[in-house]
Design a protein around this nucleic acid. Structure first.
Lengths: 192, 192
DNA sequence: ATATGTTTTGAACAATGTTCATTTAACAGG
DNA sequence: CCTGTTAAATGAACATTGTTCAAAACATAT
């Protein structure tokens, strides 16, 4: 049932998700979907929860020996996930709740946790700076990476070719680290 | 009529825009809305067109004497616009066309033009680099700024206070320019 | 005044999220 | 087994909302 919903969103976008289709694909009644998820938002949020979890799992799996490599790894992993699950990620960021119900706390926390993953390597690279300032910096950097990727993959606007995007992203991270006064790691192999 | 649609989107988000409300507010029939805009997408796109135009107008008005100040000005102006018209900007970036109709060319061009506004100052700052590479860099930087702002203002996720966001953004631009090997302009007055 | 073309209208339709009385299934006690 | 009780599943009916289109209202020319 969830599988169907996820498949529809992934292949045709959030807009083409219909309660009736999910019910039919799961070979059950419409009412059963409501018993399971409460309402349409509940269904979407459950898929979104899966999406953040999958994303987070991949991000926390990025090796952490070398902080510079880790930052590049996080950006690259995010790009790979976004490229492979563009519609699912969009559903996560673009879906608005019905009426003015609050955004679920747990999803919020997972997103924040994902965003904060740049914090640890940045702290290692900038040991002398105010940690709170570094936390803000981490969020800013992740937001920047998110912007580059989400707009870069947007097919509506002429999308940047994935390989080009990967290079741009790596160069962006390098440039920004250089701006922070961090010497580039020569052991990392060439991204452009 | 358009005024109503824009007002509804601006104050309550794209989701709460209804054809019937627009018709009633304009004191005309439902059919007249369709005569004017073709369909619902047409109505939204007309509002979006206005939004890009307004945004572009403000961006092109940013002074261009000093390229560094211009880049900061572009980022700040974008932030001011996003803060003042959060829902309108979201409608522009989040709205998906019905079915698989193509995104209108003219809006696309205007968005691209807005994105490209960072190109000129960057060319002045990086006269020795391949112009095509600089064009990509401009797009990347603008995308990064867009990401920082759009996620920073997202109320769902704990939003960064506007003033803090402004500082972060200025610092981000400075850091990135520094990473590009551009000496910071001491004449610019303090953002953080 | 009549004919002809244009614009506006809004009832009817279609798609879709939601509800809830009814039906069915599951289980316990005798 | 039968039966009463509880839980779960059902899907017809409903509410909302985008869309259509034949008819009415209006305009203009002859």
């Amino acid at each position: 049932m969830l599988k169907t919903a996820r498949a529809v969103i992934a292949s045709n976008g959030l807009r083409s998700l219909k309660v009736r289709d999910v019910a039919e694909a799961a070979d059950c009644s419409i009412g059963s979907v409501y018993n399971e998820f409460g309402d349409f938002d509940g269904l979407i949020l459950t898929v979104n929860r899966e999406t953040v979890r999958a994303l987070t799992d991949q991000l926390v799996a990025v090796p952490a020996e070398n902080p510079v490599s880790q930052l590049h790894g996080l950006a690259e992993t995010y790009l790979a996930f976004a490229a492979g699950h563009a519609n699912l990620l969009r559903a996560l960021f673009e879906h608005r709740m019905e009426g003015d119900r609050p955004f679920p706390e747990d999803i919020l926390l997972m997103v924040m946790q994902a965003f904060a993953l740049m914090h640890a390597p940045l702290v290692r690279l900038l040991p002398d700076r105010d940690p709170e300032e570094v936390a803000l910096l981490a969020r800013t950097m992740f937001s920047a990476v998110h912007g580059i990727i989400s707009l870069g993959l947007e097919e509506r606007m002429v999308a940047v070719p994935p390989e080009k995007l990967r290079q741009q992203l790596a160069q962006f991270v390098d440039t920004h680290l250089a701006g922070l006064g961090i010497p580039l790691d020569k052991t990392r192999d060439g991204e452009g």
